[in-house]
Write a protein that binds this DNA or RNA. Structure first.
Length: 630
RNA sequence: GGGCCCGUGACUCAGCCUGGAUAGAGUGCCUGCCUUCUAAGCAGGAAGUCGGGAGUUCAAAUCUCCCCGGGCCCGCCA
């Protein structure tokens, strides 16, 4: 049986090029999937050639269709008006199906020498994740899964802003005996991140008093300067809060490799990074004007900044402290391995996927801190809200100005729009993420909780309580993950779980269901002593079987395309389509029915295995839990 | 003043980068299908000025320009 080359499209292009006399590039570009299921693949090359050859596209296509030397897997070529339509041979489908069914690594792209660092979700460590943070984390997590499937090496990093004003405010709140938090309506009031969040509502009211503001500022200064015991206490509180937040992450299947604390950036790599910026000549100290005394980068000579009123960006304030931009540039230099200095790390916790998450460290008293080979990436992705596009652009521009144009190009802002309530935007500061009686579902924990309750009701009664628990958890996670990952990241998501989060149609559970169906058929096949095997050469593929095979052949390209664009949502669409194709196959094509011959049973089991492999690849990237039955 | 994102059936979204065959899904609505591998499913129907206009092209939802509507950004803040 002729095995189609994994690059069958290149083969087809080269034949088309030879037959038409058009150069290979143009031939390659003309090849595409047909918009209707008229054929397996097609070319519109005749359109562009007709003019210069002074003939009609249809005539050209008809002439080329008579060509002799098409690749062996092409069974038939026909001209459909100006289009050249290709029909592939059954042997091609057999080979496609059997490689998907049989090869363990099928659907993964070969390794590339690219390490991608993905930073997400960088939530302030003094409150629970709300649904906006969840969107960020799911995008980051799925992007890492996507890039890994597409041959890149990925590192998942979280940035912990332990020197922020919000943390200082929470630290202040912890020291107040009078601190009150009405968390009685929350089922998560005992979880530290929630407890801090509730208390923060009280703290933010106290901040209206000027003396409180002063105390908080003093506290922040001590934290920044590392005064003890304030610094250690703050660090401890932050670590405990992050661990609580990560319980939420774990429940959604979100993991990290390393957490970098802002305080550690300030105390280790920042100095060297700043020196590098100054030495490069990219930044200058202003001696006059409104930025006198500041270290600034002048960006008016950079693309995109030319027309600006004020393209000067301050890195170091006149009081000697660093702006976020200043710190971020140093941090970015470190991410690319452009600094000598680095962090020491210590294990923070072992995650449910058995991977240890490490945290940066600057404490010499910690005996278990050691160097680790984090960062040194070729590609740096920051998952950050769309409103921060400008500061992200500034970082790239400074890098470019420093002479690191390759790195500047490899700084990717994965921008996403906010999750909004029908009434307006979420705000952690105003406390609206949990305020109010009927606000259930606003935090990620509450959302999952509600979805689990809805999912339980749909589970078949024959399952045990224990099974119901694990299935409802998996279904809830898949519904939520899919709902967040399906739309383009640039689309606003209006938060309304009753309407939007569904278990049917375009949904995570729809995909899970197809996967579970496929799994059960394979299981029943095994029980009957049947294993997947390629069909005989006389096997006639029906429309649904070919539909499945057509998707399989498109997968590698779909995966690489999504990965190179750092977009997860095309995978959501593709996986949905795969589940749909399998469901069509399922309802039209009996696999284990009595009237099916033994060899056909095996052939169809192979198709089921192939479909399951394809759907499974998509689920891995989207992070949808796989159920063998549901 | 400058810049970014969004606008596609009643609703929620794909498709736009890289122009190509009757613009795809799902929800909701209407009609069928469970004695046959799981009906969280399948088949079918009604429903679309692709925000508006101009341009480029053999061909525009897709590229260019202008305009309209909605959101966001352009601090020694954090």
């Amino acid at each position: 049986m002729p095995i189609p080359s994994s690059d069958w499209q290149a083969e087809l292009a080269s034949s088309l090029s030879a037959i038409s006399g058009v150069d290979g590039q143009a031939a390659r570009r003309s090849l595409m999937a047909p918009s209707a299921p008229l054929c397996d693949w097609c070319s519109n090359l005749a359109f562009s050639q007709a003019k210069e050859r002074k003939t009609s596209p249809a005539k050209l296509a008809a002439e080329w269709a008579k060509g002799k030397k098409w690749p062996i897997f092409v069974q038939k070529v026909e001209a459909a008006g100006p289009y050249l339509n290709f029909h592939f041979s059954p042997a091609f489908w057999s080979a496609i199906l059997s490689s998907a069914a049989g090869e363990k690594d099928w659907g993964l792209l070969p390794p590339l020498a690219i390490k991608a660092l993905i930073e997400f979700p960088s939530v302030n460590p003094n409150k629970p994740w709300h649904v906006g943070h969840l969107r960020n984390a799911l995008l980051g997590d799925s992007l890492a899964r996507l890039l890994s499937s597409a041959g890149r090496t990925c590192e998942r990093m979280d940035y912990i802003d332990d020197l922020g004003l919000q943390v200082a405010q929470s630290v202040w709140g912890e020291g107040q005996k009078a601190a009150k938090a009405d968390a009685s309506s929350s089922p998560f009031s005992k979880k530290l991140d929630h407890a801090l969040g509730w208390k923060y509502v009280w703290v933010s009211k106290q901040l209206e008093k000027p003396e409180v503001e002063t105390e908080v500022r003093a506290l922040l200064k001590q934290m920044e300067e590392g005064h003890e015991p304030v610094a250690s206490n703050a660090r401890h509180l932050v670590e405990q809060c992050v661990k609580a937040q990560y319980e939420t992450a774990f429940s959604f299947g979100i993991y990290h490799d390393v957490l970098i604390f802002e305080s550690d950036i300030v105390r280790t790599i920042f100095g060297e990074g700043l020196k590098k910026i100054i030495d490069s000549g990219a930044a200058v100290k202003e001696t006059s004007g409104k930025n006198a005394g500041c270290l600034v980068v002048k960006l008016q000579d950079q693309p995109g900044f030319a027309g600006m009123e004020n393209a000067d960006k301050i890195l170091i304030r006149s009081d000697g402290t660093a702006t976020y931009t200043g710190k971020d540039v140093a941090f970015t230099l470190w991410k690319f391995g452009l600094l000598q200095d680095s962090f020491l790390y210590s294990p923070l916790l072992v995650q449910p996927n058995q991977q240890t998450a490490y945290e940066s460290s600057n404490s010499k008293s910690k005996t278990n801190s050691y160097p680790m080979p984090f960062a040194r990436a070729q590609m740096v992705v920051n998952v950050i809200g769309a409103e921060q596009a400008y500061p992200q652009k500034v970082i790239s521009a400074v890098m470019r100005k420093m002479g690191y144009s390759k790195e500047a190009d490899a700084c990717i802002h994965l921008s996403y729009e906010h999750v909004v309530l029908p009434e307006g935007r979420f705000s952690g500061r105003k406390g609206t993420w949990m305020g109010g009686e009927n606000s259930v579902g606003f935090t990620a924990d509450e959302l999952l909780d509600e979805m689990r309750k809805l999912a339980v009701e749909k589970i078949k009664p024959e399952y045990s309580e224990e099974q119901k628990l694990s299935i409802s958890q998996a279904v809830a996670v898949s519904a939520i993950r899919f709902w967040f990952l399906r739309p383009n990241a640039g689309q606003k998501i209006t938060f309304d779980y009753e309407k939007a989060l569904s278990f049917s149609g375009d949904s995570g559970p729809y995909i899970q269901y197809a996967y579970a169906r496929a799994s059960r058929i394979l299981e029943k096949g095994r029980e009957a002593g049947l294993l997947p095997a390629p069909p005989g050469s006389d096997y006639v593929f029906n429309e649904q079987e070919i539909g499945l095979a057509r998707l399989l052949m498109r997968w590698p390209h779909a995966l690489e395309s999504a990965a190179s664009k750092c977009q997860v949502h095309p995978i959501a669409d593709f996986t949905l389509e795969a589940a749909g194709k399998f469901n069509e196959f399922y309802t039209t094509t009996p696999v284990l029915a009595e009237e099916v011959s033994a060899s056909d049973k095996s052939a169809r089991l192979m198709e089921v295995a192939a479909a399951r492999a394809l759907i499974g690849r998509g689920m891995d990237i989207l992070g949808l839990p796989k159920l063998e039955r549901m």
